[in-house]
Design a protein around this nucleic acid. Structure first.
Length: 153
DNA sequence: GCCAACGTTGGC
DNA sequence: GCCAACGTTGGC
């Protein structure tokens, strides 16, 4: 069992959108960064747990959790000429980008703000704080437990 | 809206 | 393969 942190701009897609989606499930597509792609394609597995993070908004932080309900498959948007995620260099034979499906698990009453994350010594080594721009990133079990201890349901 | 950090592109 | 130019992310 592994743990991850997925970033989303809530104006684009929020934890509330996920919680109210059909079957509380969504396709996590549009990832167009190679490092994030490699995690999605090679390491994110069915049943893994996800911290849902809101970026570029008023209340930046971790807002809930989700679970991987489908492992990596080619992101259909790369083949769609009308999508902003279209990639002319991708083909069905050699897809370049991948997505997974996630299902909502919990929404926190209050977000665990970035400021509180930075203030917690147990979280000092989080990839979130080390590598600010990575939108799919691993989380250790210890970090997961520390986050859960801070969360109000 | 600004700007730092960092990823990507493309000329050489 | 290097590196400058450029684009994007994301906190503030």
């Amino acid at each position: 069992m592994k743990y991850w942190l997925f970033k989303s701009e809530p104006d684009d897609y929020s934890i509330r959108d996920l919680a109210t989606a059909p079957e509380q499930t969504a396709k996590w597509d549009g990832i167009r960064n190679y490092q994030a792609r490699n995690f999605l394609r090679d390491q994110v597995s069915l049943g893994d747990h996800v911290l849902f993070y809101h970026s570029q908004c008023k209340h930046i932080g971790i807002v809930g959790t989700a679970e991987i309900v489908r492992a990596a498959y080619p992101d259909p948007a790369q083949f769609d000429e009308n999508s902003k995620y279209f990639d002319p260099k991708a083909s069905f034979e050699t897809p370049r980008w991948f997505c997974v499906d996630i299902k909502h698990q919990t929404s926190f009453k209050r977000e665990i703000s970035l400021a509180r994350i930075k203030a917690n010594p147990a979280l000092a080594e989080m990839v979130l704080l080390k590598q600010g721009r990575l939108s799919v990133q691993p989380v250790t079990e210890q970090e997961w437990q520390a986050i859960m201890a801070m969360a109000e349901r």
